[in-house]
Nucleic acid binder design. Structure first.
Lengths: 163, 163
DNA sequence: TGTGAAACCAGGAAGAT
DNA sequence: ATCTTCCTGGTTTCACA
């Protein structure tokens, strides 16, 4: 995406740090923390968005609050060679898949899945397994988190039902 | 944290959706999108932060841009019973661990690890394996992402070196 | 990069529904 | 109660130096 090194100095790093800590911090405040004017900070942020260093600003939400109470990792095994392009298509058909990647090891891909509950998860799993060239899946359910679950939280679709 | 169900209506859902799409959207703009005044939107956002529905606002950053070019999942197997409390302590000792959870299946825990490169990852792995009651680890390296890697991006520590 | 100006926004007070 | 309107100080964003 950016073959060019895209100059990225300590000032940029400090600005990014500030925005990761609180994406709603005003440019003026960031500026006085790093020693720039608000305008200069804005210009740097705009540039970092253009070059793809910063991809967006998002609210981090407790998934449980939105009704996503079940979380699992699913290893996917494909028939024959698994073309990543085709896999990517498949993955986009299932909104419950919040992350997906090709990996080393026995499996072809690893999916991160969020569902309302175990019933919903089972339905998602069945739906995934009917996809053409998926041979088998192995699911690992998440029991509890050992870290404050920083971002990585958001099922970008916000809401099923909350009782 | 929230013993009370914390009423959460469609308006709240829309507000959260707007903030997840762009955490820097002004309250006024959100208000005109959902049919409320800016003040009303702010109050609802404040309440959602208090009740823990919204845990923060953060910039999403391409990890590669910050020098994290290697990513892996590490299954952890412990000696005997693995007390989650102790595991959580261990996990916090290694800043490269960006997510950690207890899971079903053969392993006791699953770690998400980011490192600068494979050398760095190897060092992290060795460091983890010297922890007292960790018996063995199985690593799965991430090759490529099949989804735009929404959040879940951030190693909350921003920077090693960018060549 | 910084400065200045105009438009816009945040956040509180007071009042209407 | 919760929403709205109004108001003041701060913020964003532009053109220009």
């Amino acid at each position: 995406m950016n073959s060019r090194p895209a100059p990225f100095d300590d000032l940029d790093r400090k600005i990014v740090t500030a925005l990761m800590a609180n994406a709603r911090t005003s440019f003026a405040e960031i500026g006085s923390a790093v020693g720039l004017s608000a305008t200069a900070v804005k210009r740097r942020v705009d540039r970092m968005r253009e070059t793809g260093v910063i991809t967006g600003f998002t609210a981090t939400v407790t998934p449980e609050a939105l009704g996503w109470r079940t979380e699992a990792y699913v290893e996917v095994y494909c028939e024959g060679a698994a073309p990543p392009r085709r896999l990517a298509e498949v993955v986009r058909n299932h909104p419950e898949i919040t992350a997906a990647m090709t990996v080393t090891g026995g499996a072809d891909a690893l999916l991160h899945v969020r569902a309302r509950d175990v019933d919903h998860f089972e339905a998602v799993l069945e739906r995934i397994r009917t996809e053409p060239f998926i041979r088998k899946t192995i699911s690992v359910m998440v029991l509890s988190h050992l870290l404050p679950e920083s971002p990585e939280a958001g099922a970008s679709q916000p809401a099923p039902d909350v009782r």
